[in-house]
Design a protein around this nucleic acid. Structure first.
Length: 585
RNA sequence: GCCAGUGUAGCUCAGCGGUAGAGCAACUGAUUCGUAAUCAGUAGGUCGGAGGUUCGAAUCCUCUCGCUGGCUCCA
C-alpha cells in the first residue's frame, strides 16, 4: 500500500481518496444548498460521491466545485472524528436535513457511530481520514453520471461525481496521460479507422460488420484456435442459430435468462434465437447412449449467439448483441474432472500467451447461497478445481460464494499493455443443465450415471477478444495477426511488374500482401502504409528489380535496408509459423 | 431500461434564428518520383430522423434513433 512518507504523515492512497470524496461533498454543499449527500467511497481509479439534487450538475458546475475544493484544501481545515450514539447521529443529520444520511445511520449504525467533521461539513463515516484538508492537493474531477440509490434500479436516481486524487502532482499527470493514451488506442476509434470493422445505425446497435481486414485477422485467430483444439483432442460442432422454444424452456432460459430476444413464430411454432450454445451440444451428447468408455468428450464450437443487451450497456466490440463465443463443453466422469480442468487451464494460458498476454489474475468462485445441484457435487467439483489450479502451480484468489448458481467456476483475467484487466477465460461446472436435460452415461457397473459437464470459453467472444487485442497492441498487430502483413510499394510505373510478381509469390505462400500502384511519390505511399500500421513495407525500384531484392521497412522502426527477396519470404513464413510477437530480421 | 452529455461532407471540426464552410481523405489532370504528405482543379451535406414554434430553423421546443460517460447487467 502506498504511504505518504514525504510529509511524515501515514495514510494510504485509499484514505486520501476517501477524504477527497469528503472534500468533494463539502464543496458541493457549500455551492449547492439543499443538496442531499449519499455515499462517497474510494474506488480503483479515484473516488466518487453521490448526490440527490433536482438540477443536473453541468461541466461548468464541475469546474466551480473543483475550484471550491481547492479553496477548502488551502484553508487546511482539520478533520476531527466524532463518536456519538446512534440516536445523536440521527438527530444530527435530521437537523442538517440530510435524509439519505439518516437512512444510512439507521441501517448501518451500531450503538455507537462515528462521524468526521471538517469545518461545517459532517459526514457519517468509519474513517480513517487524512488529518486535514490541506493533505488533499493533487486532484481532479472527471465526470458526472447517474447512479441508483443503493444500486436499486427501482429506487431514486442520484448524480454521481467522479474524481481522482494522488499523493504527487506527477502521479496525477501520469494518470491523466494514461487515460489519454487509452482514449487514443480505443478500439472504437482504431477499429473503423484501420478498416477492421464498422457498425451502422440502420443495421442496429450492438451488431458488428467485420470488414475484410478485420475478418483476415479473425480468420487467423480462428485457424489457430481450431489447431489448438485439435491438438487437445476436441471435436468440432456446428449448430443452428435458432431452436424451438421448448429447448429453452427445458434449459430454464425462458424463465431465468433476461436477455432473450422475443421468439419467432412460424406456422404457429415458436423458435428462439440462441443466447447460448449449451443445449445444442447437450443434444449431440444425447443423440445416442453414452458409455463411460467414451468419456471425456470434448466438443468445441465458434458459436454465434444473440442476446438483447440493454441499450445503455453496448460498447464497441466489447459489449454487443450478436457475438461468437469460443465455446466448448466437456462431458466427463468424476475421476476425470481434475485432469480435464488442468488441461483446460494450461490450454487457456498457452493460447493467451501466444497473443502476447503475460500477466494473469485467476479467481476461483465457490458456491453461492442460491444454487442448483447437490452440496456433495459442489464440494467434489470445487475440490477438483482447486487441486487443478494447485497442480498447475497457479496463484489464485478465492471468491467465496461468488459462483454462478449452476456451478463453481474459474475465471482468468488478462492484463493488457496499459495494465488494464479483462476477463476472458471462464471455466464453469454446470450441475443445472446436466440435471435439466437428464444427461447420463452407462458406467462400468452397468448403471446410469450423471456426467460432469464443464462449460468453458477461452477467449470469451471473438468480438470482445478482438477489441481487447486492438487496444493491447494499439492497432500494431504482430506480423502473424496483422490484417495486411506487407505492402509493396513500387517507386515508378516501370517497377509495377516486378511488384506484382512479388505480390503473386507472397499470396501463393499465404502472406497477406497488397501492392500500392498509385501514381504517388514513395513518401506518400509509405506514409499511408504506416498510418495503416502495416508491419512490413517493401519498397522496390531499379536496384531491387535488378538484384531480385526488396528494401524493407518495419512499422514503427523504419528503414532496414535491402534484403534478398527469397530469404525475406522464408523469414516471413517463419514469423507466421512461430506466431512471433516481434519482427527480427 | 435509467441519469447526463452528444450527433454538421468519409475523417477532424467551424457556423448556434436570415439562402451550408475549412483542412485532410476522395475524384480528375499534370508530375515517374528512393523511405511518414508533389501541384492544380472538381465533386461531395434534405446539418441523425419525425413533428412543432417562427415570415424564416443546422441554430429554439417535443418525440425518436445512434453514439459517449456512468448505474444495472455481462462474453
Amino acid at each position: 500500500m502506498h504511504k505518504n512518507k514525504n510529509k511524515g504523515l501515514d495514510f494510504s492512497l485509499d484514505t486520501l481518496r476517501h477524504s477527497a470524496a469528503h472534500l468533494l461533498a463539502h464543496a458541493v454543499l457549500d455551492l449547492f444548498h439543499g443538496t442531499k449527500t449519499g455515499v462517497g467511497p474510494a474506488v480503483e481509479d479515484g473516488f466518487y460521491y453521490d448526490f440527490l439534487r433536482d438540477e443536473p450538475f453541468t461541466q461548468e458546475d464541475l469546474i466551480s466545485i473543483e475550484k471550491r475544493m481547492r479553496e477548502i484544501s488551502d484553508q487546511d481545515i482539520p478533520l476531527e472524528r466524532l463518536e456519538c450514539s446512534k440516536e445523536e447521529a440521527i438527530k444530527l443529520f435530521k437537523d442538517l436535513n440530510q435524509d439519505l444520511k439518516v437512512e444510512l445511520v439507521e441501517e448501518k449504525g451500531g450503538e455507537k457511530v462515528s462521524c468526521y467533521r471538517q469545518g461545517d461539513f459532517v459526514d457519517f463515516c468509519l474513517g480513517p481520514h487524512v488529518p486535514s484538508t490541506g493533505a488533499i492537493k493533487h486532484f481532479k474531477l472527471l465526470s458526472v453520471s447517474g447512479a441508483y440509490w443503493k444500486g436499486d434500479e427501482s429506487g431514486r436516481q442520484l448524480q454521481r461525481i467522479y474524481g481522482t486524487v494522488f499523493f504527487k502532482q506527477k502521479e496525477l499527470k501520469d494518470f491523466l496521460y494514461m487515460q489519454e493514451e487509452a482514449r487514443k488506442r480505443d478500439h472504437r476509434k482504431l477499429g473503423p479507422e484501420l478498416g477492421l470493422y464498422s457498425t451502422n445505425e440502420q443495421l442496429g446497435g450492438g451488431l458488428i460488420l467485420w470488414h475484410p481486414r478485420g475478418s483476415a485477422s479473425r480468420a487467423v485467430i480462428e485457424d489457430f484456435w481450431r489447431k489448438e483444439h485439435f491438438k487437445e483432442g476436441y471435436g468440432l460442432i456446428y449448430s443452428p442459430h435458432i431452436a424451438k422454444l421448448d429447448v429453452w424452456k427445458t434449459s430454464g432460459h425462458t424463465e431465468f435468462y433476461d436477455a432473450l430476444y422475443p421468439p419467432l413464430i412460424s406456422d404457429s411454432v415458436e423458435y428462439q434465437l440462441k443466447p447460448m450454445n449449451c443445449p445444442f451440444h447437450i443434444m449431440v451428447y444425447q443423440s445416442t447412449q453414452r458409455s463411460y468408455r467414451e468419456l471425456p468428450l470434448r466438443w468445441a464450437e465458434l458459436g454465434t449467439v444473440y442476446r438483447y443487451e440493454r441499450g445503455g450497456v453496448l460498447h464497441g466490440l466489447l459489449r454487443v448483441r450478436g457475438f461468437t463465443q469460443d465455446d466448448a463443453h466437456i462431458f466427463c466422469r468424476s475421476d476425470q474432472l481434475e485432469e480435464e480442468i488442468r488441461r483446460t487451464i494450461s490450454m487457456a494460458l498457452r493460447i493467451l500467451k501466444t497473443f502476447g498476454f503475460e500477466d494473469f489474475d485467476v479467481f476461483l468462485s465457490t458456491r453461492p447461497e442460491k444454487f442448483s445441484g447437490s452440496v456433495k457435487d459442489w464440494g467434489e467439483a470445487t475440490d477438483a478445481l482447486e487441486k487443478a489450479l494447485k497442480a498447475e502451480k497457479i496463484d489464485f484468489s478465492v471468491d467465496e460464494g461468488e459462483g454462478v448458481f449452476y456451478g463453481p467456476k474459474i475465471d482468468i483475467k488478462i492484463k493488457d499493455a496499459l495494465k488494464r484487466s479483462w476477463q476472458c477465460t471462464t471455466i464453469q461446472l454446470d450441475f443445472n443443465l446436466s440435471e435439466k436435460f437428464d444427461l447420463t452415461y452407462v458406467g462400468e457397473d452397468g448403471e446410469f450415471h450423471r456426467p460432469f459437464m464443464i462449460h468453458r470459453a477461452l477467449l470469451g467472444s471473438l468480438e470482445r477478444f478482438f477489441g481487447i487485442l486492438i487496444e493491447h497492441y494499439n492497432g500494431n498487430f504482430p506480423f502473424w495477426l496483422a490484417p495486411v502483413q506487407a505492402m509493396i510499394i513500387p517507386i515508378a510505373d516501370r517497377h509495377n511488374e516486378y511488384a506484382h510478381h512479388l505480390y503473386q509469390e507472397m499470396r501463393e505462400k499465404e502472406i497477406r500482401t497488397e501492392v500500392d500502384t498509385r501514381r504517388e511519390k514513395v513518401g506518400y505511399k509509405i506514409r499511408d502504409a504506416e498510418k495503416n500500421k502495416i508491419p512490413i513495407i517493401l519498397v522496390v525500384g531499379d536496384k531491387e528489380v535488378e538484384q531480385e531484392s526488396v528494401s524493407v521497412r518495419i512499422h514503427t522502426e523504419g528503414d532496414k535496408g535491402q534484403f534478398n527477396f527469397k530469404e525475406l519470404l522464408e523469414k516471413m513464413l517463419d514469423l507466421n509459423k512461430n506466431r512471433d510477437l516481434e519482427i527480427t530480421l
